[in-house]
Simulated scan of single mutants.
Amino acid sequence: MVRISRGKKVLIVTLALLILLIACYRFLANISYQANRQITYGVTFSKEFAKYLGVDWEKNYLAILDDLKARYIRIPVYWNQIEPEKDVYNFKDIDWQVDEAAKRDAHLILVLGRRQPRWPECHDPVWVQGLDAKLVRAKILQNIELIVNRYKNNKAVEIWQVENEPFLDFFGECPKISKRELGEEIDLVRKMDNRKILVTDSGELSTWYPPIIMGDIFGTTLYRTVYNKYIGYFNYFFVPASFYRVKAFLWGKPKDATIVAELQAEPWFPEGPTQTDLEKQLKGMNAAKLKANAEYANKTNFYRAYFWGVEWWYWLKVSQNNNSVWEAAKQYFK
């Protein structure tokens, strides 16, 4: 009788488990896939990022609606813009964006809470510095209530997003938010309006718990190339699109309740957008890469994906005389 060493036994068991895991993954990927299902595309638009790039933000927004003809738009509501001074509110710019969307039967996601899309994530007004934490918390809840009450009767608002990637603590300049606090904000919105609530998380850097179980809709980020100061650029070439679908399936989240809230469509800017060489930017994102990312997102089988970078497309078009990415994107909004 041939005796198998302990080392070989461990290797055989490990290989058998690996084969079993791969087989299970492929099975789940297949049963969760719906052939001929097409994703719908939208964009995230940040007035502040457009201004940072030096473009006319209103023209940028109107071009999204009238030239690209995007009909699904996610809009951050930054605290420092709506309450620049304590108890002094200014909703003029958000009102305008919502009203222009309504004129064109566009559908909006309004982002509520302290943590919002775009660096540094938390856009606190200056007067908040040094304020007691309990008073800050009360203000956050008060502002959520104000925003929901202001826009809940506007037909353009389709979904409320509560916070942005709330538990991605290591990214951005934000105080931590607890599960209890996030739940409190979600409950507050539910009491005031019956629209669906979106909660988001990182697609590649998180298990998705607990955000995926807290809202009606779950939104994942989807990045193909990222930058880290320790290793430089890193590409997720080894991650199949089915990874996101299987992950949602294992959490029991239907495809019709899962979106790509942030689909990479701009380059990663390690030195910042205005400090990064244009040639380097176009290596990180261009018309071909935008198309590849869009098609990759479609393979997730989720029902919607919001491009991240429409302000950069517009900047390329009007400031750099390069409309290649803008024109390439048009096919996704027909």
Rank of each mutant, 00 (worst) to 15 (best):
residue 199 V to A: 02
residue 173 E to C: 08
residue 156 A to K: 08
residue 70 A to Y: 03
residue 263 L to E: 11
residue 289 K to H: 00
residue 268 W to K: 11
residue 261 A to S: 15
residue 43 V to Q: 06
residue 94 I to C: 00
residue 175 P to G: 03
residue 124 D to S: 13
residue 50 A to S: 15
residue 202 S to P: 00
residue 224 R to A: 03
residue 190 R to F: 01
residue 2 V to H: 08
residue 88 V to C: 03
residue 111 V to Y: 08
residue 110 L to V: 01
residue 309 G to L: 00
residue 286 N to C: 03
residue 175 P to A: 12
residue 224 R to F: 06
residue 303 Y to K: 12
residue 266 E to A: 01
residue 279 E to Q: 12
residue 24 C to Q: 10
residue 317 K to A: 11
residue 168 L to A: 13
residue 140 I to W: 07
residue 308 W to K: 02
residue 115 R to C: 01
residue 120 P to V: 13
residue 194 N to M: 04
residue 31 I to E: 06
residue 148 V to A: 00
residue 320 Q to G: 08
residue 128 V to E: 13
residue 105 D to W: 03
residue 117 P to I: 06
residue 113 G to P: 07
residue 129 Q to I: 11
residue 301 N to C: 04
residue 175 P to M: 05
residue 54 G to T: 01
residue 15 L to V: 12
residue 50 A to P: 06
residue 309 G to R: 00
residue 280 K to V: 14
residue 29 A to P: 06
residue 244 Y to D: 09
residue 68 L to P: 07
residue 332 Y to D: 09
residue 280 K to N: 05
residue 96 W to R: 15
residue 220 T to L: 11
residue 230 Y to I: 07
residue 12 I to P: 01
residue 12 I to K: 10
residue 47 K to L: 11
residue 213 I to T: 15
residue 282 L to Y: 10
residue 211 P to I: 05
residue 283 K to D: 11
residue 181 E to K: 03
residue 89 Y to K: 07
residue 142 Q to Y: 12
residue 166 P to F: 05
residue 124 D to A: 13
residue 144 I to A: 13
residue 120 P to W: 06
residue 204 E to I: 03
residue 243 F to C: 07
residue 234 F to R: 11
residue 81 Q to S: 15
residue 306 Y to E: 03
residue 60 N to S: 15
residue 285 M to Y: 06
residue 327 E to C: 03
residue 246 V to H: 03
residue 184 E to S: 08
residue 257 A to G: 02
residue 218 F to P: 12
residue 122 C to H: 08
residue 171 F to A: 14
residue 171 F to D: 11
residue 231 I to F: 14
residue 61 Y to R: 02
residue 258 T to Q: 05
residue 54 G to A: 09
residue 179 K to T: 15
residue 161 Q to V: 07
residue 109 I to Y: 02
residue 181 E to M: 10
residue 294 A to K: 00
residue 168 L to V: 12
residue 196 K to S: 15
residue 272 G to P: 04
residue 270 P to M: 07
residue 132 D to P: 07
residue 37 R to T: 03
residue 269 F to C: 10
residue 256 D to H: 13
residue 53 L to Y: 01
residue 10 V to M: 10
residue 159 I to S: 06
residue 4 I to H: 01
residue 168 L to W: 14
residue 283 K to E: 14
residue 167 F to I: 09
residue 147 I to S: 03
residue 293 N to A: 04
residue 324 S to C: 04
residue 334 K to F: 10
residue 114 R to K: 13
residue 293 N to L: 10
